Computed example of a mutant assay.
Amino acid sequence: MPLKELAERRALLHRKSEADAVLRHAVSDLAIGPIAMVSSFGADSVVLLHMLSQIAPATPVLFVDTEMLFDATLTYQREVAEHLGLSDVRVVKPAREALLERDVDGVLHHFDPDACCALRKTEPLERALTGFGGWITGRKRIHGGERASLPLYEKSGSRIKVNPLATWTQARVADYITHHGLPRHPMVAGGFPSIGCQPCTTPAQSDEDPRAGRWRGQAKTECGIHFKDGAVMRRAS
């Protein structure tokens, strides 16, 4: 079955399903094949990670360490993985040879943030996804921009991408975390509703889009992992 048709069929099948049901089906879907969760261990990541720990804790979880993340994120990643009993967390890093060739001084983000994201995030993740037929993300429509119409299932290159939390509100995320007593990323309390690499992340005001602090002042809205039709996502001018 063509991937686009498979994604559309699964989205239709789960149009009224709860997130945990979407996740449970995804990790055992023979039509998709082997699947991994890709997690930033960011502001809201613990919700989906907790669901996975209850359903299939041995599922591979890919965490891309760009080597420019906040120390708080690196510590949080280790603590959450241990707390939830996730047994196959794979830390993915950029290739050393590529860094030496293309960003030896670590300043690429200043003059070409798209190239920096490709080097440190997109390319390492693509290598790590080799052999997987699909991957699970924590993206939500409330993030705005191109995510405002996010489907539960979508074709992404040669794989299926699953977004179990697509329809969730921020209030629902907060309620879930509180109800299950889950640890929050320590930077959330400091005004960071979306947390990426240190040079390209700033706090966001309560009346701003949750991702307003990412690449602030630039048209860029995505790191490149979530390209749409091969194009880098931009803010409307």
Rank of each mutant, 00 (worst) to 15 (best):
R184W: 14
V173R: 02
G131C: 07
G145M: 11
W168R: 02
R139P: 08
H143V: 09
T75I: 13
T73W: 08
T202W: 06
E79K: 14
L150E: 02
G133C: 11
C117F: 11
L86I: 12
K155N: 06
L108V: 13
V92A: 10
V89D: 15
F70A: 06
I160Y: 05
R120L: 08
G191R: 01
C197T: 02
R184T: 13
R127G: 02
C197E: 10
S149L: 12
H180Q: 03
D103E: 04
G134H: 09
P113K: 06
G190M: 00
E101S: 11
H110E: 15
G157N: 03
G106Q: 13
K161C: 01
L100T: 10
V89L: 13
P186W: 05
T75D: 14
G181I: 08
P183W: 00
P94Q: 09
E79H: 05
G144Q: 09
L119N: 05
Q198M: 14
A115N: 01
R141A: 10
P203W: 02
C197W: 04
I160P: 02
H185V: 11
V173A: 02
M187D: 12
S87L: 09
T73L: 05
P164A: 00
T169N: 01
K121Y: 11
G157R: 00
D175K: 07
T75L: 03
A189T: 13
L99Y: 08
P113Y: 07
G134R: 07
R90E: 12
D114L: 00
H83P: 09
C197P: 07
L119G: 10
H185I: 12
T130Y: 05
I136L: 05
Q77P: 04
A204D: 08
H110I: 14
M187Q: 11
A174N: 13
H83T: 15
G181M: 07
K155E: 15
P199V: 11
H143S: 08
T169D: 02
R78Y: 04
K93L: 14
S158W: 02
H185C: 10
L150G: 05
G157K: 01
Y176I: 01
C116S: 08
G85Q: 12
G85A: 09
E154L: 07
G196K: 04
T73Q: 11
S206G: 00
R159L: 06
V188C: 05
S87P: 12
F111G: 06
E126F: 01
V80G: 03
V92K: 03
A174P: 06
F70N: 05
D71M: 01
D112K: 08
I160K: 00
T178A: 15
I136Q: 03
E123W: 04
R139M: 14
V104K: 12
